[in-house]
């Protein structure tokens, strides 16, 4: 963890709690905001070189004086719990096995769990970032089970967002703007998934306005939506890394 952001503390503490629950030993290195980029890279190398560490991640966001991408690129790709090292999104593009970014992988699991049809459907993803929109667009457009969809990626360069969302069978919004998707922007019966949240004081506000549930067929719950699946996927990536190191198959 880098710096002292209270939300980051919350997320990191939650990850430690979940690790304890499932029997994974975990610890973190705190890099203070006053540290240098070199010190952050050194912390990453410590994890890389520690034989007791199977996987780790760098909690984002990091303070502005640090280069997150450079730090992620220093992670041993075999220990990349977030699936963000450049090597691993490359494997995703090539449809090869590797750690998947946790938030989009969790959303795919959610679609499976609730039996939301994906094959041949129109999925609209709002947001094109490397942790959600971009990898999710790859996952859902692949030719495989629980994918094979027509995927449209929308972003800040698109003015007429509603023109696209109204034809979507599945909408995933990950822009971090509270209530960005409103009831008049979705078609009846669609699945509306909020991949972005905003803290307003101590309250979490999703990207999808609650009233959208009057039109949609499915909507993520305000609390306990995509977040828990993201953490679960992080631990799944960790255990897969451990098994890979020990050359044991299963759970992939």
């Amino acid at each position: 963890m880098v710096g002292d952001d209270p939300n980051c503390h919350h997320y990191v503490n939650n990850k430690h709690k979940k690790c304890k629950t499932v029997g994974i030993e975990s610890f973190n290195i705190n890099v203070p905001e006053s540290a240098t980029q070199k010190e952050l890279l050194k912390a990453g190398r410590e994890f890389n070189n520690n034989p007791l560490v199977d996987a780790f991640n760098i909690q984002s966001p990091v303070p502005d004086n640090f280069n997150f991408n450079e730090a992620v690129a220093e992670i041993n790709p075999e220990k990349d719990a977030d699936g963000l090292h450049p090597y691993n999104p490359g494997k995703l593009v090539l449809q090869e096995e590797g750690p998947l970014p946790c938030a989009p992988a969790g959303i795919v699991e959610m679609l499976k769990y609730y039996n939301i049809p994906v094959q041949g459907k129109h999925v609209v993803i709002i947001g094109r970032g490397p942790t959600l929109g971009r990898p999710l667009s790859l996952m859902l457009s692949m030719k495989r089970e629980y994918a094979n969809a027509a995927v449209t990626v929308l972003h800040s360069g698109i003015k007429n967002i509603k023109d696209y969302t109204l034809s979507a069978d599945i909408i995933v919004c990950g822009v971090g703007i509270p209530g960005f998707i409103k009831p008049d922007m979705v078609k009846s019966g669609c699945a509306a998934i909020s991949g972005g949240i905003t803290w307003q004081g101590k309250k979490l506000i999703p990207d999808i306005e609650a009233d959208t549930g009057e039109v949609a067929g499915w909507i993520t719950s305000r609390l306990g939506g995509v977040g828990p699946t993201t953490v679960a996927m992080l631990l799944r990536n960790t255990i897969i890394a451990a098994k890979k190191r020990l050359d044991i198959s299963g759970l992939s």
């Binding site: 499932v22 769990y113 609730y114 909507i219 993520t220 719950s221």
Partner: peptide, 30 residues
């Protein structure tokens, strides 16, 4: 609200149970 709610909690529990089982197997193997 007419929409059904999608909670991530049961999915996370299912995945974490699998992870817990696998972690136990790995520990048993030393």
């Amino acid at each position: 609200m007419s929409a059904k709610e999608m909670s991530g909690i049961p999915i996370a529990e299912k995945i974490l149970n699998e992870v817990k089982k696998e972690a136990g197997i790995l520990k048993d193997r030393g």
